[in-house]
């Protein structure tokens, strides 16, 4: 029930946002265009209604193309990159967290500080340095480790995924470290240690299970951050994904469809996760 309310209001919010340029245009001209705004919203929703027939004017070919079969390809490529990068980021973040948990307190502090400053790197710089590094390696050794731009119908994966995963990985790592450290202070860890279980075992089996839930709920922010990064990534690698599509054919309708194309999977992922966790916790002590 609560999820339904959240879903309805999220959808409503996105629809409301899609009409904003009308309002802003009015604001710049110095008037409040509320009726035009509502009219624009109505027009967008009506225009979209038979989804199969909706067409966009493609800027490059100057031709009307139907939105629906075409957009699927873009969406899938973008989502592939996004979720691959998210998976990579989570995997490495957790691995590094477990590894650093095994270290002494002083070394931990040092690693934390170093990563803290790494986090302030802008994603643009990361992408540019990666591209320059690929070029430099190619010039030195004549080995092309990855393509740095997509040309016609080609899909590149590992370099974009790496660029996209790096900063979220650091963020998630920090998040993991915080929750793991909170968990470390609890009594059951001391009990398990005093019963003679090794540190690795306690971390992997006991702490991990409890900490991962809290990390999962907080990782929503990371996804948001990644969406913005994905946009820049697609621009800089010339990746034919949903963001580039949206940029090329910007209109309220395309905006709405594209936002929904990643809103639905992410919302589904988190709702299922929440449901599973809540079911798991039912009857036990609430967090």
């Amino acid at each position: 029930m609560k999820l339904m309310i959240k879903f309805v209001f999220s959808v409503l919010g996105i629809v409301l946002v899609s009409g904003f340029p009308v309002l802003i245009g009015g604001l710049v001209a110095g008037e409040l265009r509320l009726t035009e705004y509502i009219g624009a919203l109505e027009a967008v929703l009506r225009g979209l209604w038979p989804l199969q027939e909706f067409t966009v004017l493609n800027m490059r070919t100057n031709r009307e193309i139907p939105l629906f079969p075409t957009i699927g390809e873009y969406i899938i490529y973008s989502l592939e990159l996004l979720f691959l990068a998210f998976a990579v980021a989570i995997f490495f973040a957790i691995t590094f967290t477990v590894l650093t948990m095994l270290l002494k307190e002083k070394a931990r502090q040092r690693i934390k500080m170093a990563l803290y400053f790494l986090e302030s790197l802008p994603d643009l710089l990361v992408i540019m340095l990666a591209q320059l590094a690929v070029i430099a390696i190619y010039l030195q050794t004549n080995v092309l480790i990855s393509k740095i731009a997509v040309v016609q119908g080609d899909h590149i994966y590992w370099l974009p995924v790496l660029c996209l995963a790096l900063l979220p990985m650091i963020q998630l790592y920090r998040l993991c470290m915080l929750t793991f450290r909170d968990e470390e202070r609890k009594m059951y860890i001391e009990l398990a240690r005093s019963l003679g279980f090794s540190k690795v075992f306690v971390i992997w089996v006991h702490m991990f299970r409890n900490a991962i839930i809290s990390v999962f709920f907080q990782s929503k922010k990371t996804i948001w951050f990644m969406l913005s990064n994905l946009f820049v990534l697609e621009l800089m690698f010339n990746i034919p994904g949903i963001m580039l599509f949206m940029k090329d054919n910007i209109s309220p309708e395309v905006f709405l469809v594209s936002i929904f194309s990643f809103f639905l999977p992410i919302f589904l992922l988190y709702s299922i996760g929440e449901w599973l966790v809540l079911r798991h916790l039912r009857g036990k002590e609430a967090i």
């Binding site: 309310i5 919010g13 996105i14 802003i24 929503k220 969406l227 913005s228 940029k247 910007i250 919302f267």
Partner: peptide, 24 residues
């Protein structure tokens, strides 16, 4: 419900949102 409404902003990439609004 205010939270739900604000939450919808979480699904719109910030840059794109900014570009969409600032373009005019």
């Amino acid at each position: 419900w205010i939270g739900g409404l604000a939450d919808s902003l979480h699904y719109i990439p910030l840059t794109l949102f900014a570009a969409y609004i600032l373009y005019p």
